[in-house]
Structures are given as C-alpha cells and as structure tokens.
Simulated scan of single mutants.
Amino acid sequence: MQVATSPLTTAPNRVTLWSALTSVYFLWGSTYLFIHFMTERMPPLYMASLRYIIAGTLLYGYARLTGTPRATRTEWKSAGIVGILLLTVANGCLTLALQYIPTGVAALLGGLLPVFLLTLNWASFARKRPTNLALVGLVIGLTGIYFLVKPDKLQGTGGLHANLIGAGLVTFGNFAWAVGTLLAPRVSLPSGTISSGIQMLVGGFVLLAISLCVEPVTPWSILDAPTKAVGSMFYLVVFGSIIGFSSYAWLARNASPQLLSTYAFVNPVVAMLLGVTFAGELFSSQSLLGAVIALVGVILITLGRK
C-alpha cells in the first residue's frame, strides 16, 4: 500500500479506501487486548519497542527488496519525527496507560482523538472549518463516548489515582497522535511501505532507549518472556503494525481528517467486546447505548466529510 508524497489532490479508489478503513477499524480495535496480554508479565515500553523494531525491519526490508528507492536524509528525518510522535509518544503512552486502566476504558478514552484532529486541523494546520454535519457527528460521537466512560463507571483496578494517571496518559497520547497525523501530509515522506518502516524503526529504537533507562530490562530480556507475551507481540507486529499501521499511514495521506477520525469511535466498540469476551471486563446496558450513539456519530462524520 503506497503513501502519497504530496497532499491529497485526487479522490482515492473507494475499494482501497474502505479496505484500509476496515483494517484500522477492527484490527486496531483488537490491539488493546493484545497489548494487555503482551505486557501482563513484561515491561510495557520494552515490549512495545520490540514490536515496532521487528515490524519496521520487516517493512523496510520488504520495501528495499521490491525495488523501492532509498529514502533521502530529509525523508528519513521527516518520517522519524512522525514515527516518534505516533509510536514513541502516543503508543508509548497507551501501553503505559494499560497498566492503570482496563483495555475497554483505554479504548474509549481514545475516542477523544477526533477532538484533537478536527480542532488542530481547523485552528492550526489547514485552518479549514469542518462541515456542519461533521461537527454534529463529532458531538454525537463524543456523547456516546461519555455514556461509555461516564465518571461513575470509570473503575480501574488501582482506584481514582490510577484512573487519573491512565486517562492522562491516553489524552496526551491522543494529542501527539493528532499532531503526527496532521503533520504527515505536510512533510517530505518516502513511499508508503518504506515510510512506515522508517517510522517504526525510529519510533521503536527511541522507545527502546527510554525503556533501557527506566525499566529493569536488557536488550535480551525477550528471551525470558512467557509464551503468551511473545505470541501477543507477534500478533501486534503483523496485524497491528504491518497491516493496521500501514493502512492508517495510507489513510493519513489520502482521506480527510473527518473520515480518518471515525476509527476512534469504532475501535472502542471492538475493544470493549473483546475485553468482555477474553478479559472479563464489564459491558453494561449503558455501555451498549453509548456504543450505538458513537456509531451514529461515525455515520454522520463520514457523510459530512468534504
């Protein structure tokens, strides 16, 4: 899948567009559960760094073997900055947050991402006001998120303090992700596959450096990891990073911010269903109502995209 090297000028193929959206909607919705499994008994930043280093090596190697030209120094720098924002900061914050709050709650808090995407795109990047229908969809979607994570339902395993830490980490990660997403079409990036590979390599190695400084690990600690953690990491490498992230990178260059932001409303629904089924998390009738409302917001934002 190729990432354009210039801002969107023509409409993307609809089959490719919706295939990429479906991938981001459902595969990324499952990553919350597998991040939880991956870090149950292993340091979170260390495991996240290995996930991206492995995935980045595979993507970069595939791109070069199939004839993709080498990236220039400028392209390496641009892709590296985007990778640090998306993977080191945003995904690192999410991985840490899952040590404090349940997977479903983390995914639901991720529903705040469209606020940053649409607001930053309006106020700073494109200075383009979203359509009225998209704004209505955003409000409805956030209303659904409110019902999903109503304060009196925000119960983690570590009490109020842990909830605040987890929610703060996810919120800061959302901000970094929105900046990286909106920056991507405005910098010089190489073609899609090699760009994703560079982003993962740079983001992963920066994350590894941080992990080695703050976590009790060595570069070879993976040899002591339990089978469940290793298996979850490879699921995330293939489905979360190689397929899911590459799809997102393509969408960041070929879809409007309104349409791209809709995945943050679908992911929580997928994550909550998986959390209920495999992690024993609660899914109340209020949560079901919130999920339905959030999906209505998705539809309106999609219809309201420019």
Rank of each mutant, 00 (worst) to 15 (best):
L58S: 07
L288N: 08
A178Y: 14
G110R: 06
E40H: 11
L117D: 00
G159V: 01
L109D: 04
G244F: 10
N121P: 03
K228H: 13
M47N: 05
Q199I: 07
T68G: 02
Q155I: 14
Q99T: 12
L135G: 06
W76V: 06
T68C: 11
L118M: 14
F234C: 07
S6R: 01
R253S: 09
A11H: 10
T227D: 04
T88H: 04
R73I: 03
V238D: 00
K306Q: 04
F175G: 09
S195I: 15
P12I: 00
W177S: 14
A134I: 06
M233A: 12
L86Y: 02
V82A: 08
S221C: 07
T103A: 15
L8V: 06
R127W: 09
D224C: 06
A249G: 06
M42L: 09
A4V: 09
N132D: 14
P102W: 08
A107R: 13
E40C: 04
V187Y: 06
I84Q: 03
L85N: 03
A126G: 11
R129W: 04
I198F: 11
A162V: 03
H161S: 01
L154V: 14
T103L: 00
I210W: 09
L33G: 13
S196K: 11
T31V: 13
P268W: 12
M38I: 11
V89A: 13
S23A: 10
G83H: 02
L86P: 03
M200F: 11
S6A: 13
S241M: 04
P185D: 03
L94K: 02
L8E: 12
R253K: 05
K128N: 10
I222R: 00
S256V: 12
L133D: 07
A294N: 03
P130D: 02
A264T: 11
T57W: 04
M272N: 14
N132F: 10
W18K: 14
G67T: 09
L303H: 09
H161K: 00
A225Q: 10
P114D: 05
W220S: 14
G280K: 06
H36K: 15
L164Y: 02
S196V: 15
G275H: 08
S221P: 12
A291T: 03
V139R: 14
L50M: 10
G56H: 06
C213P: 03
A271Y: 04
G110H: 02
G156N: 15
V149T: 05
L94H: 00
L138V: 13
V139Q: 07
S196D: 12
A97W: 02
A107G: 15
Y248P: 00
A178G: 08
P7Q: 13
T227V: 12
G144W: 02
A55L: 01
G111F: 08
I194E: 11
A162E: 08
Q155H: 13
L112P: 01
F283P: 05
S124Y: 15
G297S: 10
S195K: 01
Y62M: 12
P12E: 01
F34P: 06
Q2I: 01
L260S: 01
P219Q: 07
K128E: 15
A134M: 00
L59I: 15
G141H: 13
N132I: 15
S78P: 04
S23C: 15
N254C: 08
L288A: 08
I81Y: 01
L120K: 03
F34Q: 05
A225F: 03
S221T: 07
S30L: 06
I299E: 13
T5D: 14
I53H: 09
G197L: 14
L113W: 04
W220D: 09
P12Q: 02
T5M: 12
